[in-house]
């Protein structure tokens, strides 16, 4: 398990190497996860979501191997050469999909209880600001609230090995995104469950201060601290924010 210090590296707890073809894209990816929070960073269509789906067991890659190290215990989640493929419901890798897939016939409370079978932890409800929504149905809450339930539901899952978040903060306004990132970090501080999330948002990667795996053309281009891996993007972003002409042209456009 990762250490309690945020972002600190430990022994790898997931080792993945897969080869898979989706449409035009040929994924040839290998990496190790050893940080509390790792971000898969890359443009749309670079295979980020597919990697999450392979990790969670929803997609079987053409070939590959995924090993999980949990304390002293080593579990083979996938090994196509041996025909091993642990089904999604036994992997303990809950996935919060990009579009909040709340069960429409269940209340927020029942959605939260779905993966744990237990009453939601009051501290978690506090962290995600869900206490007053518990008896609402998904159609009665806002998009931002639904996204909070989506994340909290995956986080509330029983004994997760790794939490998978697919663009968890995309499409949310900046203050809401900031508060949700803080919610997730606070939750992680308490539980120590590692997170792998997907984004193409530079600012988000810096706010989390996570380890970044950069994907390009279906393979891992670089892996390391956000400041190091995304320095070019950061400079570009800062230039865009500082340049008055660029700003005004954007405002007009």
């Amino acid at each position: 398990m990762p250490s309690s210090k945020a972002g600190a590296a430990t022994e790898p707890f997931i080792t993945l190497s897969i080869s898979h073809r989706v449409g035009q894209l040929h994924l040839e990816v290998a990496f190790e996860l050893s940080h509390r929070w790792t971000i898969l960073f890359g443009p749309s269509g670079s295979g980020k979501t597919t990697i999450l789906r392979v990790l969670s067991g929803l997609v079987a890659p053409e070939s590959g191997r995924i090993v999980a190290q949990d304390g002293g215990q080593r579990t083979l989640l996938l090994d196509t050469s041996r025909g091993t493929n642990i089904p999604a419901h036994l992997r303990r890798t809950p996935l919060a999909p990009q579009a909040p897939s709340l069960f429409p016939h269940l209340t927020v409370r029942e959605n939260l209880e779905f993966g744990s079978g237990a009453h939601p932890d009051p501290e978690m409800l506090e962290t995600f600001e869900l206490t007053r929504l518990l008896n609402q149905l998904p159609r009665q809450i806002s998009g931002g609230e639904a996204q909070r339930v989506n994340l909290a539901r995956a986080a509330a899952c029983m004994n997760p090995r790794l939490l998978l978040l697919d663009e968890p903060f995309t499409g949310l306004d900046l203050p809401l995104r900031s508060s949700l990132v803080d919610n997730m970090l606070a939750w992680q501080q308490r539980t120590g469950v590692p997170i792998l999330s997907v984004t193409h948002d530079v600012a988000e990667a810096f706010q989390i201060g996570a380890e970044v795996i950069r994907l390009a053309d279906g393979s891992v281009a670089a892996q390391g601290a956000a400041a190091e891996i995304l320095s070019d993007e950061r400079d570009l972003l800062l230039r865009q924010l500082e340049s008055p002409c660029r700003g005004s042209s954007l405002a007009k456009g």
Binding site: G57, L58, H89, L90, A99, S101, R153
Partner: peptide, 24 residues
Amino acid sequence: NLLETASTLGSSPFRIFRMIALPM
């Protein structure tokens, strides 16, 4: 996507049938 999400949350195929598919 609801069925897939339910399975990553640890639900067996039978539980997904009973708790999600059948009520919906």
